[in-house]
């Protein structure tokens, strides 16, 4: 009996090891461990054996069955793994095809992207972002900014009027007054926005965008203006930039300056091949904005004794977003910014 068990086990082990597929393995399992198979039946018949044989035979048959079961499980795992591998190997895609469905990338307009970048630089420098109306009172746009009654900017050839005392703001500067009227010093603000002038050619569009800056505190100096704009210029145009201030005239700042940033395109006005830099026209400086210390007359228009020019001082600046964007991204014509041609829009933002 024991011998027969050994024989059955050996046969079973041979068949299981020889099964090449999960189907063949199942067939082997049914043949050796199925309901009609000899080994299980032998186990079932143990009770009919003489008592002295029961223990020995039962143990041997049981061991044989368990061993076979374990072997089948192991073999099954082996075969399934191999079969999965084979299936997966056959289930191959061309990974170089485009993703689908496509997820097209949208873009911010270059002007928005640039405006945000400028805002972020000044946010980091401790300035808050304010906004104001585009249709503005002559009072805020000119009078309170110390423009003489005959200042040419007031001319109808230069400025859009929508009423006797209403204009499309010609700069973001009117918000200087509005900001001071609604906030006491210290005041650190930048004001981005759309402005308008009656001008149209390759370098002027009747609408464009500015960022105004205003800092008023106990001890703001022209040197602080220089430092602030240096930090700005380096953030936007690269850390090795320098700025220089050139004296100028604006009605609402005194002293007034124009600010140049060192050209990022060349060395001392010349390119590597020795030719003259077209960006800075060989000057090695790029004009980027107008600025100055807030004119004492401007404070006088803010009806608030805390804005007393004997006790506080401030600087203001105004820069053109278009100019910054064009310089930085080598956009040759201002009008491209307003064509809204996808072939342009896709390149930025």
């Amino acid at each position: 009996m024991i011998e027969r068990i050994e024989q059955l086990r050996a046969e079973g082990e041979r068949d299981v090891a020889g099964a090449a597929t999960t189907a063949a393995l199942e067939e082997a399992r049914v043949r050796h461990l199925g309901r009609r198979a000899e080994l299980p039946n032998l186990l079932r018949g143990v009770a009919d054996l003489p008592p002295d044989q029961r223990g020995q035979v039962g143990r041997a048959a049981n061991q044989a069955r368990q061993a076979l079961e374990a072997q089948i499980a192991a073999r099954a795992q082996e075969l399934e793994g191999a079969e999965l591998d084979a299936r997966l190997a056959a289930d191959r895609v061309d990974v170089t095809l485009p993703g689908d469905p496509p997820q097209p990338a949208g873009r911010l307009h270059l002007l928005t992207a640039t405006r945000r970048e400028i805002e972020d630089v000044f946010l980091g420098l401790g300035f808050t972002v304010l906004e104001g109306p585009e249709v503005e009172l002559v009072h805020y746009n000119f009078d309170a900014l110390n423009h003489a009654p005959n200042h040419p900017a007031r001319d109808r050839t230069d400025t859009f009027y929508v009423g006797e005392d209403l204009v499309l703001r010609t700069h973001t500067s009117p918000m200087q007054i509005r900001a001071m009227e609604s906030h006491p010093p210290p005041l650190y603000v930048v004001i981005p926005g759309r402005v308008y002038r009656r001008d149209s050619d390759a370098t002027h569009t009747p609408q464009f965008h500015q960022v105004e800056g205003l800092a008023v505190d106990e001890d703001i100096t022209l040197a602080d203006l220089k430092g602030t704009l240096l930090a700005f210029a380096r953030a936007i145009f690269g850390h090795e930039r320098e700025v220089r201030l050139r004296p100028h005239f604006f009605p609402f700042t005194e002293p007034s300056v124009e600010v140049d940033v060192s050209c990022f395109n060349c060395t001392e006005g010349h390119l590597r091949d020795g030719s003259r830099c077209a960006l800075c026209k060989g000057t090695s400086w790029l004009e980027i904005l107008g600025a100055g210390e807030v004119d004492p007359n401007v404070y006088a228009y803010v009806d608030d004794e805390r804005y007393d020019p004997e006790r506080i001082a401030g600087f203001a600046f105004g820069l053109g977003i278009e100019r910054i964007a064009m310089l930085r991204h080598a956009v040759p014509d201002l009008r491209l910014l307003y064509d809204n041609d996808l072939r342009f829009l896709e390149q930025f933002g």
Partner: peptide, 11 residues
């Protein structure tokens, strides 16, 4: 080139 002291101001 200096930066304002910015007492109490935050952006």
């Amino acid at each position: 080139a200096t930066l304002p002291a910015r007492r109490g101001a935050s952006g």
